[in-house]
Amino acid sequence: MVKAVPNTLRVFASLFVALTLVFILAPLVVVAGVSVSESQFIAFPPSGFSLRWFAAIFDSNAYVQALITSLKLATLVTVTATIVGAGAAIALHRRRLPGTSLLAGLFLSPLILPSIIFAIGLLMLWSATIGPVSFWALWIGHMVIALPYVIRTTLAVLADSDPFLEEAARTMGASRWQRILYVVLPQCVPGLAAGAFFAFNISFDEAVVALFLRTPDLVTLPIQIYNQLEFSPDPTVAAVSTLMMGLTVFLIATLDRFLGIQRFVGT
């Protein structure tokens, strides 16, 4: 049999993919490695095995506070962004509002416009109109970043649904609210669930808006890590980072388990 791709090339391609994966995953593996090291210095490969740095997290008030802040923030952002995003996605999907495509562009623009630009604007606007930045400023900021993800995943599942469901419901006597409640929202559920996963993950991991809007009392987990990295990193940072990675892996696995990740990765 003639092979379309020469064997040497196959070997070379496999090697290339493997090396690229090593490169992409290296920093994650290293952080996980450091977190279980016995040594009190940050070193890779790790020496020995110990979970004491994970225990150390919970002895540190700063980390515990940051963890609580981040969990509170991410949960609130997830709930609100999902609700707001659901409404926006349904309206965009129906294409009945004038300027729908313009509106869609506006809703998705936080995805591509670098967050540093809007973060600094938010800091200035909040300070000028409301006063010192607070948890609520951070909540608003993360909503803006998380919203496009919810809208995008929800629009994707709505695009796959039967376009005549709503009309069919009308001919069967369903009123406006009944159509939203019994027909449209149930169609949105997989997209909203995926969007909620993304929203939580983004809010929990985000470092730029949180950095601009931080105050001594308002430090999220990524910012706490950032602070430690700027000054005196010890393996506790690695342990916290590993926890965060664990959460991400858990979220991806859950997303895949319940919804199938293929639907939301764009290919």
Binding site: D162, F164, T171
Partner: peptide
Amino acid sequence: PENRDIAMMFQSYALL
């Protein structure tokens, strides 16, 4: 349409 007391069967069936 919801108040016309009609029924319609769609080409795609539009089953919920």
